[in-house]
Amino acid sequence: MKRFEIIDHTADISIKAYGKSLKELFRNAAFGMFNILADLEGITTSTSLELKLDAPDKEELLIEWLDELLYNFYTKQLIFCDFDITELTDKNLTAKVKGRFIGENKNRLKTEIKAATRHDLHITKKEDTYEVRIVFDV
């Protein structure tokens, strides 16, 4: 199963993320987002961060998750590539994320993402696979 794929969107960048579980879907959505931001090929991790988030439903929680990672990317200057979600319900998420400082990895940077949008955001389950399409404002 693909983790995510880039799909056509006229102005911005859109991905479709997949997962056998909701946890895997969230992990792959984050992985997809960081693949737009930077070249993750062969990157290793050097630091980690613990996150605890809540939201009224799973779609809002997904946006909260991506927003939180983006905020940390810009302010802590961290490229994340490893997302260990330890707890996930429709309203709560606990995770340990690992990454590397941008510093000497500047040449990995690709496209600036302004935000993950809520446009047409629906988490669906087809047979036993979760999927979601996310439009990023770039």
Binding site: T10, A11, D12, T117, R118, H119, D137
Partner: peptide, 9 residues
Amino acid sequence: IHWGYGLPI
């Protein structure tokens, strides 16, 4: 006009 998010561009 083109496809954006929320309001179109």
